[in-house]
Every structure is written in C-alpha cells, then in structure tokens.
C-alpha cells in the first residue's frame, strides 16, 4: 500500500518522513499507554517494536529500507549517550566514600557475566557472533549497541536481549535477593543496576528511592567497565573456544 502511494522518484525521502513520523507516533502512543495504566512491563520501547514489526512485514518494507529511513534516530543516538553524563555527575558525590569497593565488585560482575553468557552460548549454540551479542546484554542499550557494533556482532540481538534482561532483573530481582537473604537496599540496588540497567532502575524508581540511587550508579559504572573490559576479554574468550 505504502509502496504504491510513494512514487519511485521521491521514494527515499518520503519513506524516510513516513517512517520517522510513524515511529515517533507509536512511541508517544505507548508512552501515553504506560502513563495511563502504570504497568512496568508496558515499556514504550518494547511496545513500539512489537507494533512496528508486524506493520513493516504487512507493508513489505525490508529492514534495510527501514534502517535507511530511520537515520534521524541513529544520528541522535550518540548525543543521547552523552546526555547520560548528567546522572553520572549527580551520583559522583555518593561514590566518593566507597568507590574502590563498588568498582571492584562491579568489575567482578562484568567479568562473570561476560564469561558465563559467552561460554553458555558457545556450549549450546556455537556461534561466535551470537555469543558476543548475548554477552553484552547487561549494559544499558546505547552502550550495548555501540559495543556490539564495534565487535561487528549483530546489534539487534543485543538490543532485544538487553530489554529481556532488564525486565527479568527488574521484576524478579528484588524477590530473588530477598529469598537469598540479602535485604540491604544498597546491595540490592547495585545488583539490579548491574544486571538490568535502565529498565531495572526505572522499575525500582517507583517505590524504592534508596535502591534507585545505587542502581543508577551501578548501571553507569558497569557500562563503563564493560566498555573497558570487553575489548580485553572477548578476544581471549574467542581464542579459548577455537
């Protein structure tokens, strides 16, 4: 239908405008839905993707067409990551007292998650690019995507598994940690921030402010640590499994 309306001469421009508008509209729409019902699993990003995928399939728009037409969002990705420096600045004074401990724990966590998910993927599926894409899933989306593109792995798998990991950790995390007997708000917040990044933090932000401060601290630092450690660890892991 859309391909019929758009004439071949001006197809790229009008498709770009159309795609940009419909993505924005769907995102705003799902933000409204979430504000109305307040369900945490109604994540705007997830809803937009779930609506867009059937729509694109129905309209016979291929992914390369979509990717080309949504250049505007790709262009805005880098400034958006830079904007995350502000919450980091707000947390700086908190980390001053126990920064060594926090950085130590978080880098241990990054090492563990890289090794566990990489070796599990190699063990079950045996596809190195998939293993890289899955092992980068515990950092926040922009950085995960940037990193997996740097390793020339598939960023869409990373993006999707990042969202799933966020929901698992944010919704089940506090209950799981209570079950283990770890009730301290600081440690729970750190753990959830390290494992489920922004989505986990957003889930905590609703009724646990102390958790939330430590969680946002952990999400930023574990993203930085993953960016620093993964170029060292992933080549080693690739060698170990070859």
């Amino acid at each position: 239908m859309i391909n019929d309306i758009i004439s071949p001469e001006n197809s790229t421009v009008s498709l770009a405008i159309f795609i940009t508008l419909i993505t924005l509209f769907l995102y705003q729409f799902s933000m409204k839905i979430q504000q109305k019902w307040q369900f945490i699993w109604l994540n705007p990003m997830l809803i937009t993707i779930l609506f867009l995928v059937p729509f694109l399939l129905y309209q016979n728009i291929t992914y390369s067409q979509y990717h080309q037409s949504s250049q505007l969002f790709t262009l805005l990705l880098e400034p958006a990551i830079v904007a995350l420096g502000f919450p980091l600045y707000q947390q700086l004074h908190q980390i001053r007292y126990h920064w060594q401990g926090i950085i130590g724990v978080l880098s241990l966590g990054v090492l563990v998650v890289l090794c566990v998910s990489f070796s599990m993927t190699m063990f079950y599926i045996y596809q190195p690019s998939l293993a890289i894409a899955l092992s980068l899933k515990s950092v926040t989306t922009p950085i995960g995507i940037a990193l997996s593109e740097q390793f020339s792995a598939d960023s869409s798998i990373t993006a999707f598994s990042i969202i799933i990991a966020g929901f698992i950790g944010g919704i089940l995390g506090p209950k799981w940690l209570d079950l283990l007997g770890i009730h301290c708000a600081k440690s729970q917040g750190l753990a959830i921030g390290a494992a489920s990044h922004v989505i986990g933090t957003a889930i905590l932000a609703k009724d646990k402010p102390e958790h939330c401060a430590y969680s946002s601290l952990a999400l930023i630092f574990s993203a930085l640590l993953t960016a620093i450690l993964s170029p060292l660890i992933i080549p080693l892991l690739l060698k170990a499994f070859n």
């Binding site: 924005l24 937009t48 979509y66 993006a159």
Partner: peptide, 22 residues
C-alpha cells in the same frame, strides 16, 4: 537533560526492529 534522558528510548527502536531479520 532530564527531558532528553526520559525520551531517549525512541532512538533505540531501529536497532530493536532489526529482530525482523532473525
């Protein structure tokens, strides 16, 4: 900045839609 961080999710939609290929 607060506004930017709240609405940055839309920039990740194209990457997520890539699941079409998989």
């Amino acid at each position: 900045n607060l506004w930017l961080v709240r609405h940055m999710g839309v920039c990740f939609v194209p990457a997520g839609v890539g699941i079409i290929n998989h």
